[in-house]
Amino acid sequence: MLRDARNAKTKDQKWIESQSYLPAFSGEDWDRLEQIDNLLRKFEEFTHTVSKRQPQLSLVLPIYYELHDLLHDAAYREGEFASIDRDIAQAADAAMRIGKLHS
């Protein structure tokens, strides 16, 4: 959905501007949407992987650790997420902390 919004940015921007009750989207807002989309893309990929007709239990641990590493990099603004927005990094950190509470 985020990717679709980014692909239709011009139309979406015009629609947002036509709605008096919505605040305008800035370039920074669009950048944040792109960062969130990039972060969540791996979750989407793995969801499709485990949603196959016959998912393999042997994939659970590798997927878990890859997602953990992804959230870690986002939370600590490392690797491909070095320039991620601080608010998004804090959300990734919170997601990791919530996961630890339930494990």
Rank of each mutant, 00 (worst) to 15 (best):
L67R: 09
R32L: 04
R3A: 08
H68D: 13
Y76L: 06
R97L: 12
H102M: 08
S83W: 11
D12K: 02
E17Q: 13
L33A: 06
L2A: 04
Y76S: 00
E34N: 09
E80K: 10
Y64E: 13
H72P: 00
L39I: 04
E28W: 01
K11G: 01
F25E: 03
E78M: 08
Q54T: 15
L59N: 15
D87R: 10
D4L: 07
E78R: 14
V60E: 02
A91V: 03
Q35P: 07
K100S: 11
A24I: 06
F46D: 10
T47Q: 07
H72R: 14
Q35V: 03
R53D: 12
L61A: 13
F46N: 10
V50F: 14
W30E: 00
S18I: 06
D85N: 15
F43H: 10
A89F: 04
S18V: 04
E17P: 01
A24N: 03
K42W: 08
T10V: 09
D29F: 01
L22D: 01
G27S: 14
Q19D: 05
K9E: 07
R97C: 04
Q35W: 12
S51Q: 15
A74Y: 03
T47R: 04
A75T: 08
L70V: 10
A74I: 09
L33G: 09
K9C: 02
V50R: 13
V50Y: 15
F25G: 02
K11V: 04
L61Y: 13
I36R: 02
D37V: 00
L61G: 00
S18D: 08
V50A: 03
A89L: 04
L101E: 10
D73K: 14
D87I: 03
W15M: 02
Y21W: 10
F43G: 00
K100W: 04
A95S: 14
L57N: 01
D87S: 05
H72V: 06
D69K: 15
